[in-house]
Design a protein around this nucleic acid. Structure first.
Length: 947
RNA sequence: GCCGAAAUGGCGGAACUGGUAGACGCGCUGGACUCAAAAUCCAGUGACCCUAAAAGUCGUGUGGGUUCGAGUCCCACUUUCGGCACCA
């Protein structure tokens, strides 16, 4: 078999050159062919390069793209880079290497790795977000958002000029617009406003607008932190204090689109799990606003509740410490406590504010129906961000209110009778109302409607739907991002740049340290920042700006008249298949849908949703091998490493787990995983700070020189993330060099279903390597010459081939790519067994395999005398008749338990089967003379005899 | 805490709408080739019972249920992994 070796390195080199020179993956312009758009999620080019986990999705989408191409579709299968981002900026601060330089290097490295895997991208369409030709249009979309508002009666975005017209003629009265707060003013008032006042007022409506946001500010680092950069109230880096700080920030009014983002999800072919995640993020809840009069008069207190049915169970009201009315209520001696609570609320992250802490304001509100005096409290667990920042406390039917009431001895009233319903907890939404006047006897859902109706009738409230989703912060105090194309004049009015002034290029800066007072590093670019009209905005756009519309740019990547031409947009429309990881499940997908809907409202794109079908790929995990280091108290004379085999002799708290480089470990990921003396030596060279350490196992202890030659230190194995920090990263380049790209691709697919996470184990790759060798050997005779016979194939050969075509075609369409590889193995094993060298069998098989193994199949295609590329040939079809077997294997069961396999001709009828089966000696034995009660026969499937 | 997904040999996994559990591959065992090894090829490989074969028994996280028949459907639970988190 081994006469001719497949030289993967030379073949892959030649193929890459050929594909490149013939531009076979170039997507032609618009055509009459049906289109198919296969997209991978935009990678951020990190300095570490790709590891074997990344390409899982890329290979899957590439297989689909190649199949569609061979099926005659016009395929768009592009790749590019999300190139702005914090890591490059931090790297620059550490090393002095400018982000533009490191980013370019990282991109080149990524591209080379992707090309090596044989992915069929049209690189002429590459998109890189940090290039001015691209971010010009990111800035352009931002300006469109700035110039539009969301009209709630038209249910779409409209130009802000329309809104201004309405203000001029009727003030705010006839306006239906999404806004930050509901404002009331007359046309006269509007017309009398200064430019600055109008500018401020319009910010209440614009889809891109400025507002004061509370951000996590870390004074020591001089920067704003993300939620996940904070641990236990202090910064993860350095452990410095973090506080909430109000800052003027740009934001996008994504909340205007909440309902459409929710509703349109119904039409998408996304997994239910993913849709649920997005639904939870949007978090729609129906409830109502209720006004409570304060006993002392003055402003009403507005609370929001999703359980207005429990209004007769309310025994107190509670406000967030930050609530604007709190100051008024706490005027005097309580002010000090209020300020303390505000401070407390300020430092603790929202997620930590769950304690039943608070104080009584000494003031009372009046119940809208009973006029009962309800005490008003300030409570830590009430958040200003949600609803109205005030709640009615119903301790009988809300667990947090219950805890609060118990702590402060407030009355707890039950107003729902749960008897007759399975009780889970007091918050459940079933039961019958009691002690509730006009609600008595109603069940919960009717009572909610009735309560809202009565409140509206009494002018004491109104039905209101709220969404958990918040408007998205759009300002970043960073250098490496798109500049925001806005200038502020002397009065502080915002002046958007004109389209003709785009792109607003990012100036070159060498010092990227944060500016003073929470400003972006760009504030140091004085010359750039100062314009005749005023001072430029120095904040930049966040990471998600560039990635929210990149999929549109691929349709027409070099257009300098618009972000993409109308023709290209109407031909390509939307993404047919989008593959990527769950880490983007909420953020990126939500923002992209929002931008897309906005562009749809403006008539720029033909679809209201960008991604028709979406598949989340699982993670490829790595093996983490660690050694145990015994923590020494005081000043340790010597470090002691403990074999995992004796680790249980020491208290777990005394052992530190140190990840060790996977290459040093023998029998990794088995119970026998260990470091031999040679491994220990490598370990000490790698971590010289442990030189002279002692190693201890069940037999011996000592430093390296003292240990017996057969000494082994057992390591601790677990499955986890593949990451630099665990020293377990497997680089695809290394695998490809040893086994070839085809083998790498097929093995990644063979590992398991695409959506599932699974561990990488390089050992298993041998099976795929053997398979490819066997496949290759089919084309060579015993003398080692390429040899195919051109004659009528046998029925057996045809059946083997057509069964494989059917299985693989169907499984690619359902993205079950692991079973495709099995099908190829079965087919090749079978063809080998029957010594097939038939051209009419082996070449269709080769075309079938081309999407999986693009290199070796191209090579065979050339050897068999073809001029063009196999990837531009046609995809094979199957003949159903040829896939069928001529006989049926019936499992015969007695009482559902299989006892015998009966092979009969397919032509046999049902009656013949029924009578025939009882005549079988094997069955007679089981019947023991008795008559069967029943025979269940599923034609072509099975026979079951009930006795 | 809430939401979602999953659990099948030593390992990765297969099994379409309930119908032969363990396809395919890794690993392991034995054999062939070889002076020997590697590579390659052939055979075996869920557990139990048995000298062996045949036959049998048990087996898809746990406990129940529906059904002629359950990995697949229903109920309860356990564990693991993801996501979100005081959403009033």
């Amino acid at each position: 078999m081994n006469l001719v070796e497949y030289e993967h390195i030379a073949v892959e080199q030649a193929c890459k050159q050929f594909w490149n020179a013939a531009a076979i993956y170039k997507t032609e312009g618009l055509s009459d062919k049906p289109k198919y758009y296969v997209l991978d999620m935009f990678p951020y080019p990190s300095g570490a390069g790709l590891h074997v986990g990344h390409p899982l999705g890329y290979i899957s989408s590439d297989i689909v793209a190649r199949k569609r191409r061979m099926e005659g579709y016009q395929v768009l299968h592009p790749m590019g880079f999300d190139a702005f981002g914090l890591p490059a900026e931090q790297y620059a601060i550490q090393t002095g290497i400018h982000p533009s330089v490191s980013t370019r290097q990282n991109i080149d490295r990524y591209r080379e790795q992707l090309v090596n895997i044989g992915l069929s991208y049209d690189w002429s369409r590459e998109v890189i977000t940090c290039q001015p030709e691209y971010y010009r249009w990111t800035q352009w979309i931002f300006l469109q958002l700035f110039h539009h508002y969301y009209d709630t009666s038209a249910d779409r975005a409209l130009p802000i000029s329309k809104l201004v017209e309405q203000f001029e003629h009727g003030g705010s009265t006839s306006v239906h617009a999404s806004c930050s707060e509901t404002l009331q003013f007359s046309a006269e008032a509007w017309n009398a406003m200064s430019l600055k006042e109008r500018d401020d007022l319009l910010m209440n409506y614009r889809l891109a607008f400025r507002r004061i946001s509370h951000v996590n500010w870390c004074d020591a680092l001089g920067t704003v932190l993300a939620n996940d950069e904070i641990k236990d109230g202090v910064s993860e880096r350095g452990g410095h204090p973090v506080e909430k700080r109000p800052m003027m920030q740009w934001a996008l009014r994504i909340t205007a689109y909440s309902e459409r983002l929710l509703r349109d999800m119904e039409t998408l072919e996304w997994s239910e799990a993913l849709k649920t995640m997005q639904r939870n993020w949007i978090g729609k809840s129906k409830g109502c606003a209720i006004f409570f009069d304060l006993e002392e008069g003055g402003d009403k207190l507005e609370v929001y509740s999703t359980r207005p049915d429990t209004i007769f169970g309310a025994s107190f009201l509670a406000l967030a410490p930050e609530h604007p009315l709190a100051e008024q209520l706490c005027a005097g001696e309580l002010m000090e406590s209020l300020m303390e609570y505000r401070k407390l609320a300020n430092v603790s992250a929202d997620r930590e504010r769950k304690n039943a802490n608070g104080f009584f304001t000494q003031k009372y509100a009046l119940h809208p129906f009973t006029n009962e005096r309800l005490p008003v409290w300030i409570a830590e667990y009430v958040l200003i961000e949600y609803g109205t920042g005030a709640i009615m406390g119903v301790p009988g039917h809300d667990l947090r209110d219950e805890a609060f009431a118990q702590k402060f001895s407030l009355p707890i009233r039950k107003v729902i009778d749960f008897s007759g319903y399975p009780v889970t907890d007091i918050e459940q939404k079933t039961g019958v109302l009691v002690n509730s006047q006009f609600l008595d006897g109603l069940d919960v859902s009717d009572a909610i409607d009735r309560a809202i109706g009565e409140l509206e009738l009494a002018g004491r409230g109104y039905g209101k739907t709220v969404y958990k989703m918040r408007d998205a912060n759009f300002s970043r105090q960073r250098y490496w991002g798109e500049p925001i194309p806005v200038i502020y004049d002397a009065n502080g009015c915002s002046i958007p740049l004109d389209e003709s002034q785009l792109p607003l290029e990012l100036p070159h800066l060498s010092n990227l340290e944060p500016g003073s007072g929470g400003k972006s590093p760009l504030s140091a670019a004085a010359e750039w920042g100062l314009t005749p009209q005023g001072q430029r905005e120095t904040d930049t756009m966040p990471g998600y700006a560039g990635s929210s519309w990149y999929f549109l740019r691929y349709m027409d990547p070099h257009n300098d008249q618009s972000f993409a031409s109308k023709e290209a947009l109407s031909y390509w429309r939307d993404v047919d298949l989008y593959i990527g990881g769950t880490e983007h499940a909420v953020g990126h997908l939500m923002y992209s849908r929002f931008w897309h809907k906005f562009l749809f409202d403006l008539g720029y794109v033909p679809t209201s949703e960008p991604f028709r079908k979406l598949v989340n790929q699982g993670m490829i995990q790595g093996v983490i091998e660690s050694v145990f280091l015994l923590k020494q108290e005081g000043t340790p004379a010597v470090n002691r490493f403990i074999s995992a085999s004796v680790a249980d002799r020491f208290p777990a708290g005394q052992l530190a787990k140190i990840p060790v480089h996977l290459d040093f470990v023998e029998d990794a990921n088995t119970p026998a995983a260990h470091l031999s003396l040679a491994g220990l030596k490598k370990f000490l060279q790698w971590r010289p700070e442990f030189a002279g350490s002692h190693f201890l196992n069940e037999h011996a202890e000592g430093h390296l020189g003292e240990l017996p030659p057969d000494f082994t230190l057992k390591t601790h194995s677990e499955i986890g993330k593949m990451s630099k920090r665990y020293h377990n990263v497997v680089n695809p380049d290394d695998v490809i060099r040893e086994y070839g790209a085809d083998c790498f691709r097929m093995y990644e697919m063979f590992l398991g279903p695409i959506e599932q996470s699974k561990p990488w184990d390089t050992h298993g790759i041998d099976g795929v390597a053997k398979f490819l060798k066997k496949y290759f050997a089919l084309f060579f005779n015993e003398e080692g010459h390429f040899h195919l016979v051109d004659e009528e194939p046998t029925r057996e050969e045809l059946q083997t081939l057509h069964q494989c075509i059917k299985k693989v075609s169907q499984d690619i369409d359902s993205l079950s790519l692991n079973t495709c590889v099995s099908a190829f193995m079965i087919c090749v094993n079978e063809l080998r067994r029957i010594q097939c060298s038939n051209r009419r069998i082996l070449l269709p098989l080769t075309r079938l395999m081309a999407p999986f193994a693009p290199f070796i199949t191209e090579h065979i295609w050339k050897l068999s005398g073809h001029e063009g590329s196999i990837h531009l040939s046609s995809y094979p079809n199957w003949d159903e008749v040829l896939t069928e077997r001529t006989e049926v294997h019936y499992p015969v069961s007695i009482n559902g338990k299989k006892r015998f396999e009966w092979i009969v001709a397919k032509s046999l009828g049902e009656e013949e089967l029924r009578s025939g089966v009882l005549e079988l000696p094997e069955i007679k034995k089981w019947l023991g003379g008795a008559d069967p009660k029943k025979i269940i026969l599923v034609p072509g499937r099975m026979i079951n005899i009930v006795v």
